[in-house]
Design a protein around this nucleic acid. Sequence first.
DNA 1: GCTGATCGTTCAGTCAACTGAACGCAATCC
DNA 2: GGATTGCGTTCAGTTGACTGAACGATCAGC
Lengths: 265, 265
Amino acid sequence: MADSHAPASPEKPGAASPAPAVTRAAAVLDALAASATGRLTLSDLSREVGIPKSSTSNLLLALEEARLISRQGAEFTLGRKLVELGAAYLGRMDEVQEFYRYCEQASVLSRETVRIAMLDGANVIYLARYEGHPAVRLTSNIGDKMPVSLCAVGKALVARLNWHDIEEMFPDDAELPVLTPKSLRTGAELKAQLREIREQGFAFEDEESTTGVVCLAVSVPTRGAHGPSLGLSVTALEATYTPEQGAQMVKELQELAHSLGNPMG
Amino acid sequence: MADSHAPASPEKPGAASPAPAVTRAAAVLDALAASATGRLTLSDLSREVGIPKSSTSNLLLALEEARLISRQGAEFTLGRKLVELGAAYLGRMDEVQEFYRYCEQASVLSRETVRIAMLDGANVIYLARYEGHPAVRLTSNIGDKMPVSLCAVGKALVARLNWHDIEEMFPDDAELPVLTPKSLRTGAELKAQLREIREQGFAFEDEESTTGVVCLAVSVPTRGAHGPSLGLSVTALEATYTPEQGAQMVKELQELAHSLGNPMG
DNA sequence: GCTGATCGTTCAGTCAACTGAACGCAATCC
DNA sequence: GGATTGCGTTCAGTTGACTGAACGATCAGC
């Protein structure tokens, strides 16, 4: 390491990729997605990803031809093709379609803000959102990620994992990300809640990500052997939330979850 | 599908890509997105994209490591990373955020189904959708594509192009895709409408994509020199549509378009 | 207007990725 | 049951992609 300031660990040291150009191209896309403005120059990307400029230039040319990125003057941004591909992914998930259909005709959920999310490591990714409650407008969009410890649906999904994996992901003294005064702070706190969630069959969030907002969530039994873990959540305003309401919402969430887990209903 | 899968010429004959592995990887993603079920085996992909199996195998390994695809047994599907990247693209578009904000507080549009779309060759891609009208549920989702001749927003966007380019894209005898009895059939028909749209400043669709549904649309003046062409549309049921309603909707659409085209309003 | 730095592109040499045939394996057909 | 078809993987040879330094272009500073 002659270079003192290694910007990150962009290269894979041990494992050689079977198609390095593809791995590098993916790193370029990640760098663009992670950057603050979403606009980077060739030199920026070359530095960020840690590959020579000339190689980066070739990658960018190929990515641009594939519409995966777009060049505007000297700056590169993510390309619109990514929207199409992401949409193709979501469109293929029957669960998302079924989710919309169910929410529309449910008695309570049809008037609430409901979301379906997927577990991705220590985060959840929101896949779709049904907005039946005009007063509850979420700041998070489809595709956004959220640490599992900060949302009901994250806790519901993690509670389904093997306890051994949970212990590994969240040691007792693990420091968790904090968004509000009520956010959980340590792995021990989280695991105490996970035990509760396992017993009662649903998860809750009491202003842990946003003050004034509460959530309820359940996990969907995995359809088939493969496939990602899905979860469902309802968001409500703390000011108007009542336990009776909550009980009914959980009931409908569980019904939807069961229907999603056992297709061809 | 604009391109019926031609098994013969999947390769770029004349132009050699500066990073063929990336171009090929993109072709693999396209093939997965275009396939009926979204699930293809290595051999399927090898045949579809027209590259040797061993090479395809390496590509798939790299793509899987990057989470751009996912393997389930012997079948490959698009990966969840694509949802993140697509979301990152949309999240960077200030126009989408502003679109939501405006729709929520508009007097008429807040109770309608509104969409924002972008021109992509001879198609439009839907970027976001605001659902203020419970009775109007669209079958098309975010990221879906639609031929420009079949929707109001497509016609609004094409009407903005140079007439020379329009003539090239749509010769008089060009055959247009047809979805309903009212769909436009020829380039001549389309261009007649485009002239009308240029004069009145907004576009319309009279059951050309879906029977019983009408649309109004305007284009957004391009922000800055670069950047994609954006368009806005409102969808209404033909049965309840009135011209007075339409006039008000067009007014608000144009207001939003103006605001999107001139930021920091 | 000149200097300096930074940016993106070009080019030839070298190394590594791609090819294609052969392999093991599983499911299918007769 | 045996044969056959199709799948995905392996491996060595060869072609083609990647590197890195030098080039011209652009912009900021004095």
